[in-house]
Amino acid sequence: MSNDILEKVGKKTPFTVPEGFFETMHSDILKAVEKEQKRKHRATIITWAMSAAAATAIALISFSVLQPSTGSQSTQDMLADNNSDTYLTNMSDEELDMWITLTNNDEFLNCDNTIETIY
């Protein structure tokens, strides 16, 4: 059998679209992509802020652990001095929240506190 039938039908289809569909679709896609871009941007900022907060918390904890013990200053004392105050003042709200959460949940810091209270 020849390709007559295919040639007769050609590439036409019975499918149609509503009037102005492609114009609307074009702007709808651009809006959807813009939304997606904003979502991606927000996610990047949150990831960055969380990483920075975690790094800060680790640095603070490491500092308190590696500091040679003089027996005269507790972790709380160190945080209360001027340098730490300046450091904390410079922290963003998100970093501060993260730091407080980590500090509250930190067994080492809380354990240290308990020992000081007992003795």
């Binding site: 007769k8 039908v9 036409k12 289809t13 019975p14 499918f15 149609t16 679209v17 509503p18």
Partner: peptide, 14 residues
């Protein structure tokens, strides 16, 4: 919806 039923040949082809 959005199908031209008058196009019989094209309908049959689909």
């Amino acid at each position: 919806e959005h199908i031209d039923y008058d196009k019989e040949m094209e309908m049959k082809f689909q």
